[in-house]
């Protein structure tokens, strides 16, 4: 039974503030009553044109970032005109406004934000970095997410998600990998989200972070037993390894010419299936699979290269 993907269509200004307020150094200046307003797009907008009175294609559903340019423009207007422009802007139901560079919002801005109930924040970050960070954070909030049944490890920089039925030995395998000095991201339950629309990032649910269940031993605190070097908060998935009972496998790979893939949230990740039988050193196999995957991403496919050499040689001999 597989978990269903979670898609987020909107987050409230309050949720954004709670989750990222500290990282972005946000301070709420006005419009507290509107914290329930919804951000509906995973990016930010600079409302320069809107403040100049041009509202076609105005991306009102995004977080609005006001920098020096907008502020100086508004200052250049007469008091009455300035207030009117700000009112026009707030009428568009924007979710929230962030002032960069610790710019003190103009008094009209503060008053109208309260009047229209639109949260207004201030951040010490310079506009460019603020936009970049906020976009990344929003992208993560809006990214499709799923919970995968599998154990995630980092082997020399290669993120490996170990899957397989319960009791097949995923945790034991991860334990042996920890002993070899690699690190654990999550055991058994792994949260996965799509980064940037093309990569899968894996992490552990907060509640069970660094915990591992080993049959016969119970719960193990990996961070305390193996040290802080043995854990990792987040890692990209580069390879999926499925541990499987050989009797249930239709086909066991013998050459490795074809790259198999496993799809998570619409992203295809290289996949290998390893038959589990008594006496096989699974950790060693997973380790080699990860290293071979690294070779492949560097452009070396051992099986293909060998086969091309072999075919060329056989062709040469046939001509003789």
């Amino acid at each position: 039974m597989e978990a269903k993907p979670i898609t987020v269509r909107a987050i409230s200004a309050e949720a954004f503030y709670t989750a990222y307020g500290r990282q972005l150094g946000l301070k709420l200046e006005a419009g507290e009553a509107g914290l329930d307003r919804k951000i509906r797009e995973a990016t930010v907008n600079r409302p320069g044109l809107a403040l100049a009175g041009f509202f076609r294609y105005f991306a009102w559903m995004r977080v609005q970032v006001v920098g020096k340019a907008e502020t100086f423009y508004l200052k250049s207007l007469s008091t009455g005109e300035r207030r009117r422009r700000i009112q026009d802007f707030f009428q568009r139901r924007v979710p929230c406004v962030v002032f960069s560079r610790n710019i003190r919002p103009l008094s009209e801005f503060l008053e109208e934000a309260d009047a229209y109930r639109v949260p207004l924040f201030r951040s010490p970050l310079v506009t460019g970095p603020l936009i970049n960070s906020a976009t990344l954070m929003l992208d993560m909030e809006f990214a499709p997410k799923i919970t995968e049944h599998g154990t995630m490890v980092d082997i020399l920089g290669i993120g490996v998600l170990i899957k397989g039925e319960s009791g097949v030995g995923k945790s034991e395998c991860a334990l042996a990998l920890l002993e070899r000095g690699y690190s654990l991201v999550s055991d058994d339950v792994t949260r996965v989200y799509v980064l940037d629309g093309r990569e899968l990032m894996a992490s552990s649910p907060e509640e069970t972070r660094y915990l591992m269940e080993v049959r016969g031993l119970g719960l193990i605190d990996v961070c305390r037993v193996f040290g802080v070097g043995a854990i990792r908060i987040e890692k990209r998935i580069d390879l999926v390894v499925t541990l499987q009972d050989p009797h249930k496998m239709e086909d066991i790979e013998r050459v490795g010419m074809e790259q198999e893939f496993h799809e998570i949230l619409g992203i295809r990740v290289p996949h290998v299936c390893i038959p589990v039988s008594p006496g096989r050193d699974l950790a060693r196999l997973v380790e080699v699979a990860a290293l071979d995957q690294k070779l492949k991403t560097m452009g070396h496919n051992t099986a293909k290269e060998f086969n091309n050499r072999l075919i060329a040689r056989m062709r040469g001999e046939a001509k003789k």
Binding site: R254, V255, M257, A303, N307, L310, I311, M314, R315
Partner: peptide, 14 residues
Amino acid sequence: KQGIHARPAALFVK
């Protein structure tokens, strides 16, 4: 045509 290269060999051992 291609002789016993990787794919035929895999099929044979299987």
